[in-house]
Computed example of a mutant assay.
Amino acid sequence: MNTTVVELLEGNARHARAFADRFDDVQDAQRPDAVTVCCSDSRVLQDEMWGNDEPGRVFTAGNIGNRVVQRTDEGEAVSGDVLYPLAHTGTDTAVVVGHTGCGAVTATYGKLTDGLSEPAGIDHCLDLLAPSIEPGLAALPDGLDDEAAVNHLVEYNVDRQVAFLLESDEVPDGVDVVGGVYDFQDVYDGGRGEVHVINVDGERRVDALRDAHPEVDGRIDRLWEY
């Protein structure tokens, strides 16, 4: 057996021992408190970032670029893996989480500015992401290097994904939509691994967010108010 798979199974055995008695209440149904839409980057630990060890609490959706959009025969729609818990399990909170140094945003930035080419499957994902990033290019502050530009566009992309959910008729009324950035590169003030809230139901202004949510005002921050 592949050594990596052996190691994964060893880790799973530890997981199974630790979690054996934690599935009793979710045997037949789930009612997660939140759906999180995170980048599938291996450095983004989707449950661990929340300290979550409770099965059934968080419905996790992951893809490159933390996208909430998919293309259908009828046009763009909310991705089914995001919409399902909102439409069917009573989940009333959606959290879109980008991350510093995002490879998907970097690649899309390269595609839009330098014509970067990727294999068809990756290119398809970048094409889905591009409409959420391209308008931000012209608005970027002057003098940014590529690394800083990408981190600004990470925020811009999160904002656009949040907006898509808020504007969609498919998302039930009353769903709270929050956007954040997971930082493991010391880009924001705070500890590595912290999620910084940058958007709540479309509000992006840091001062307004801190006034509205004083219980987490230390976790509200942005690189870019535009």
Results as ranks from 00 to 15, higher is better:
Gly75His: 06
Glu76Cys: 04
Glu76Lys: 08
Glu76Asp: 15
Ala77Gln: 14
Val78Ile: 15
Ser79Gln: 14
Asp81Trp: 02
Leu83Phe: 14
Leu86Pro: 11
Thr89Cys: 14
Gly90Thr: 12
Thr91Tyr: 12
Ala94Ile: 13
Val95His: 12
Val95Gly: 09
Val96Cys: 14
Gly98Thr: 04
Thr100Cys: 02
Thr100Asn: 00
Cys102Trp: 00
Gly103Gln: 05
Ala104Asp: 01
Val105Ile: 13
Val105Phe: 04
Ala107Ser: 13
Ala107Met: 03
Thr108Ala: 06
Leu112Gln: 05
Thr113Ile: 04
Asp114Lys: 14
Asp114Gln: 12
Gly115Val: 05
Gly115Thr: 05
Gly115Arg: 08
Gly115Glu: 05
Gly115Ala: 11
Ser117Trp: 00
Ser117Met: 11
Glu118Met: 15
Gly121Asn: 12
His124Thr: 13
Leu128Met: 14
Leu128Glu: 15
Ala130Ser: 13
Ala130Leu: 04
Ser132Thr: 15
Glu134Ala: 15
Glu134Leu: 01
Glu134Asp: 11
Gly136Thr: 03
Leu137Trp: 03
Leu137Pro: 04
Ala138His: 13
Ala139Thr: 09
Leu140Met: 01
Pro141Asn: 02
Asp142Phe: 00
Asp142Leu: 01
Asp146Met: 07
Glu147Trp: 08
Glu147Gln: 12
Ala148His: 03
Ala148Glu: 11
Val154Ile: 05
Glu155Lys: 07
Tyr156Pro: 05
Val158Cys: 07
Asp159Phe: 11
Arg160Phe: 03
Arg160Leu: 02
Val162Arg: 10
Ala163Leu: 08
Ala163Arg: 14
Phe164Leu: 11
Leu165Glu: 06
Leu166Gly: 10
Leu166Trp: 04
Val171Ile: 11
Pro172Glu: 04
Gly174Trp: 03
Val177Leu: 13
Val178His: 06
Val178Gln: 06
Gly179Met: 06
